[in-house]
Every structure is written in structure tokens, then in C-alpha cells.
Design a binder for these strands. Structure first.
Lengths: 217, 217, 217, 217
DNA sequence: GATGAATGAGGATTCATTCAT
DNA sequence: TATGAATGAATCCTCATTCAT
């Protein structure tokens, strides 16, 4: 019902009264706690009280900043999503896109994988929250990625139909996701091996489709 | 209304009290209802009362046949698991395994995909029930599949190390799972396209590894 | 509340069709099972299903003979009560009542104690069922005993007021009950010691009240 | 589960947040309500919702302070037990123990009887809760009383064996308990009469055993 | 009569959310 | 604002009792 609190952090300027600085800290605190709890038990099993306790505040305080449990997940997902999108923006930089496929895969996958390794809550949330607000964010993320991937593919396969590109992009994302599961579940050399294997799968999958060598614009 | 003659002919002898036939039907009914509800909402969000209602019985009836919510999931998962394993047994028949890779992929993937399309609850349950009894079954299934896949791979790549085989098998399963998501989320021609694409991905991934053409024993 | 089925077993004659003989056996079976279950867990914790199972019949069968759970306890209590009253009738025989106090105590207490040792369910039921129907039976038993005890006391203390007799009788019964707890909780020599101690307590309590030596009529 | 509330009332200083004062009151309120309900219906038949309603709060509130139904009984029993033990400590004061038997009985029994009359829930709980936590406390209480009684007896009967003392003590406690039932079931003059009768029974039971007149140390 | 499935109200417990201080 | 108590609907599960066969 209540939706009053929705100011983006970006909107805050240095002129903001320091009264609200504490509030910002509280929100960050709560989101961090939520990330931990969601990660451990998943969204459904996480109770607002446990999040509050993890954050070291009372449940009442939590509800001073978030209208309900879903809003926490949405905000957390949103922030991570934003950072993810920034990542993607850099990963899909034009200067990367004109590289040959192997280098391109490195340039795109490495930062994305790194981001997910550093923010495991992201994956946990996106996966199976069942919360509309998040699913929506997830879909936005997915669509964004899809578009980017399709864009890249287009430069490699100028003759492909849109349907083909869509199909292939979805497969690529699927392969990426399932590999990410393996990557996040392992460590060290094994993790590196899965990363290499992911690139190998994608390379072999995509190479036969490539009809053009992209060149710098 | 009533369907007295519907029990399995083989298992039921004249000594078996026909009273219990109703119980058998109820159990099947409840499991089917549970499959639907689990599929829609996932295990955690599914309430026993909603399962009972879906099955058209009272909550007490449900508890006459299952001691608790988890037991329903375990039983359902177990039955599906068993049928899945039988599928796999047929899919990985030796006569299939000596075929060339493309035919092999058809022979193995088609029945498994068909099974999952017919039993979407299977995937939903295996995925994220959080129920130990199922997770365990899931792991058994996974390990079983892994072993089978490794066995096949071994015949194609006799020189690979065990670690390599393990890595590759896990990737194959991961790719299969993520494609299954796409397959289950679509229908008709699109679904068929994803099936074809899955085979394509696997074929291109595996072909370079093949060092031997397996022959019938 | 419901009391439809209330025919006393005593009312059955040899002319009764043997069809009902099975019913009688069933009832006895069920009552015996109930005695065991009530004894183990107490009335409240005993479920009708557990009684039925203990008796080796289905719950439906149980309800063919007893309208509800309470009726089982009432019937069981009633039967034991009847046998108890027969005991008491013999224990309080006139030929016993004219004995001197020590012999009288032996004559009265020994059979009563023996009965309770052989029928522990009796005590368990009478004690704390909380069921009106039983409490009622218990009170009838209590009142009957009270009357008998008062009758005996009267012969020993012809000058006592009714209030005094009532008071004393209640104390005697109370002492008896608490001692019975100790007696039932022990065995062998210890049990015998408690029996002796009970008699000792009563003897010392009553002796100072005795004003007349009763003589045979 | 719950660990928060454990400070003794004495421990509350001005530094203690007064927020929690309300909690303390609620707990007392709930325990009082529980005492009433347990008294009326016994432990098993008492529902947590009825306790909450009796206390004028919602079921959730009850569970904010007690993890489950049993904990309520254990806490209530524990508090009463503690107060009972304090009573006993005063009742069995050395200065009482060197009095002649009649005065001793007055000194010991009167406060204990008074306590039970003021806290009828105590007896109800101790009796037949079936709760391990309470049964345990009950046994501790019983054993403590037994020891105290034996201690007193020892001063009166220096020559008795331990077995004899144990037997006698158990009888005394049994007589006391059964009389307490009568005392709690009556009022006014009748109650007083039962109290007097109890003392009379014990006096007559014990007098013949006394071999020594205890003197102040 | 016997059976065992069916019923459904009721009880313990949880947790997202609100309120008084 | 922060706190923690308060709320109550919803959930899992039980069991006395009834019903269809």
C-alpha cells in the first residue's frame, strides 16, 4: 500500500540535511543484512525479523524505511541491477565488440563473472524469488542483456534473422547462467576451469555462425 | 463417479482388500494435485490445505496418507525420480551409445526432454524445494546422470582424464538444464527450435573432444 | 451427552441370540484395550484410534459399540466400579465389622488393595479423567465407600455426630488413596511395608475415637 | 529459543530500558492467566489461545514471551516452586523444629497449607501436567520435602533406620497431599476442620514413634 | 457388523506488519 | 526515529466422529 519512500540515492546531493544521512546508513545496513539473509535461505524463507536482527535494528525500524518485505528485495535487486548494468555497459563497450570472438568473450564474461562472484546475493535474488517486483527487474535485466548480446551477434552474423538471433541469445544466456551456477559453487582452480569451459562452449557454439569479422567503426 | 476397476491388474490379487483401492486412488489424486500446486507456487508457498482442496478432499484426508507436507513432496519426487531413472536407463542403452554423436544426442535427449515436458512438476520440485529428502534424491539423480554421461564420454574420449570428464559432464548437464528451462517455457515450433539448438550446442561442444568412433561391442 | 447404548451385561440371558455374542466379545476387547491405553497415557491423551488399534479393530467398529470416547471410559469405569462394589460388599460383611479394629482393617483393606493392584486402570480412570460421566461414577463409588465407612465408624463411635463421621470418613478415604498411590508405585517387600504402614496410620487415627467394642448381632 | 528475558526483577535498575517493563507485566499477566486456565481445565485441555484470551492479548503476543505451551507451564511451575521452597525454608526453621510435636505441626503445616490455598494452580500443575519439565520440578520439590521431613523425624526418632524414616516420610507426605485435596475442595469451617483433622492424623501417627524430646541446639 | 477412508473444527505456532512509547 | 511489544490471519497438523462400501 505505502510507497512514499522511493527516492533514488542518486537524487541526494551534498545539500541534504545530515539528519537523513543516518537514514541512508540504515538503509545500506538493512540491505546488506537482507543480502546476507536472502543468500543463506532464499527470499521466501527469510523473515523480516531475521533481517532486522541481522542488521542490528528492531523490526519497527526496518518498516520505517521499507513498506514491506518485497520492497527490500526490490530495492536490493534494483541496486545490484544498476551496478550490474553499469558493468555490462563497460563490458559491452564498442572497443570490445570489434575484437575477435575469443577476446570478446574474455572482455565480456570476465567482469560479469567477477561481479557475480562478489555479489552472490544478486544471483540468489534474481533466480527464484517469486516476487513480481523482482521478477520484473530480472526480466528487465534479462532483456537488457539479451539486447546487448543480440547487438553483438548482429555484428558477427549480419545475415541472421531476428528470430535466429533471439534464439541464439537466449541459449547464450542460458548457458551462461548454468555455468555461473557451477562457477559460484566452486573455488580456485576448479572455478577457473569452469570459466574456461564456459568460454569454450560459447566459442564452439558461436564460431560456426560467424560470417563476418567485425572491424572497428 | 466411481471407477472401481482401475487398479493395477498385476499387483492386485484377489486377496488384496479392494477397500484399499480407494486409498491408492486418493494417493494418486493427492500427488497429482500436489504436482500442480508445487508447479504453480513452488514447494514453500504451497499449503497443505491448498493441495487438499485441489484434490477435492479435506485436509484430514491428506494427512491420512501422508504424515506431513514434506512427505508429499518426497513421495512425488521419488515417483518421478524413479520414472526418470527408468527413462534414463532406456535412453542410455548400449545400442544407443555406439551411435555417432548426432544420433546419440537424439536418442538420449529426446526421451528425457519428453519426460520433462510431460512432468513439469519434476523440474519444479528438483529445483528448489529446500526439502532434504528431495535434495538428496535430486543429488542422486544428478550423480546418476553424471555417471552415465561420463560413461558415454569415456567411449568417445578414451584419453581424457577423470577430472576432464567430470568437468565436461557437469557442463553438459548445466547446458541441458538451462535449455530445459527454455524448452519448458515455450511451445510448438519455438520449443522445437530450442531443442534443436540444445543439440547443436552440445554437438559443437563435444565434437572437438571426440578422438574415437565408438563401435558396437 | 448421548446415552442410547446402556444395556447392562447382566440383563443378557441365555436366550440372547448368539449373533450378539460377538458384540459382547468386541466390547470386552475394546474395554480391555481402553484400560491399557488409559493406564499408559491417561484418559485425555488416549485417542479413540489408538484404542481401536490396540483392540485390533477399526475406528468405525469402535463407534458401533460406543457413541463416543467418554462412553468407553464410563463403561469401563462402571464395570470396574461394579466389581469394586462387589469387593466392598464382601469386605464390609457384617461378620467382619464386629471384629476388633486391627482385624477389621485387615479384612477390609486387603481385598480392596488386591483389587486395585490387579486393576490399575481403575485407579487411573477414577483419578483424573476430568470426564463428567466418570467423575460421577467416581463420586458414586466414593459416596458408597463413604457410606460404608461411616456405617462401620458408627458401630465404633455411637456418640459421634454425622458431621464428625463424615469428616473422619473422608480423611480415611484420603489416607487410603494416597497410600494406594505408594502401594501401586512399589513392589514386593516395600509394597507390603506401605500396606502395613497404612494400617498403622488408620489404627492410630481411629483408636482414640473408639468408644465401644462392637459385638456380633 | 528465547533468551532475552531472563533478568530477575531485583536486577532491574534505572538503566534498564523501561520498554521492557511492559514485557515483564505481560509475562506476569500471561502466567496469571495460565494459572487460572490450568486450574480450571488442567494442562492438556488448556489451549494457548484460551490463555491468551484470558490474559486479554493475542496469541502472537503469548508467543513473543514463551516459545511454546510447555514453557508457560514450566515457568509458572518454576516460579511457584521457588516460592514454595522459600515457604518450606521458613516453615522448617530450626526454631520450629525443636518445638513439641503439636506446635511443630502447626508451624510447618499452616504456612504450607496457606500457600496452597492462595496458589491452587500450584497443586493442579504439579499433579498431572505430563510435562517433563514440571514433573522434574515436582520430583525435586517432593525430594526436598522428603529430606526436610526426614530431617525432622530424625530429631524425634534418633534410633530409626533410614528405611523406616523414608517409609514414614512418604506416608506423611501422602497423608498431607490427600488432605490438601480435601482442604482445597472446601471452605470456611469445613476447611478448618480438615486442617485440624490432618494435624490430628499426623500427631497420632507420629507420637508413638517419638523417643526423644528435641531441645534447642 | 466391519472396515478404513473422509470430515472439519480446533489447536499450536509463525510472521508480516502496526502501534504505543 | 528507534524500539520492542502487539496483532491476527494463515499454516501445519490432530483427532473425535461419520460415511460409503
Amino acid at each position: 500500500m505505502r510507497q512514499e519512500r522511493q527516492e533514488k540515492p542518486a537524487a541526494r546531493t551534498s545539500a541534504t540535511p545530515r539528519r537523513q544521512a543516518r537514514g541512508e546508513r540504515r538503509i545500506a545496513q538493512l540491505l546488506e543484512a537482507a543480502a546476507g539473509v536472502f543468500c543463506k535461505n532464499g527470499y521466501a524463507a527469510a523473515s523480516t525479523n531475521s533481517i532486522a536482527k541481522e542488521a542490528g535494528v528492531s523490526p519497527g525500524t526496518l518498516y520505517q524505511f521499507f513498506p514491506n518485505k518485497e520492497a527490500i528485495a526490490v530495492e536490493l535487486g534494483g541496486q545490484l541491477l544498476q551496478r550490474a548494468n553499469e558493468m555490462h555497459g563497460q563490458a559491452f563497450l564498442p572497443e570490445n565488440l570489434c575484437k575477435p570472438l575469443p577476446e570478446l568473450l574474455d572482455a565480456v564474461l570476465d567482469p560479469v563473472i567477477a561481479f557475480n562472484c562478489e555479489n552472490p546475493a544478486f544471483w540468489a535474488l534474481m533466480h527464484g524469488s517469486g516476487v513480481p517486483g523482482i521478477t520484473q527487474g530480472h526480466e528487465a535485466l534479462h532483456d537488457g542483456l539479451l539486447t546487448r548480446v543480440q547487438g553483438v551477434l548482429r555484428t558477427f552474423c549480419p545475415d541472421a534473422t531476428n528470430a535466429e538471433l533471439n534464439l541464439t541469445s537466449n541459449m547464450i544466456l542460458g548457458i551462461f547462467k548454468s555455468s555461473l551456477d557451477l562457477i559460484l559453487a566452486t573455488e580456485g582452480a576448479e572455478r577457473a576451469a569452469y570459466v574456461a569451459e564456459l568460454k569454450s562452449v560459447l566459442l564452439r557454439y558461436l564460431e560456426p555462425m560467424v560470417t563476418t569479422t567485425p572491424t572497428a567503426p
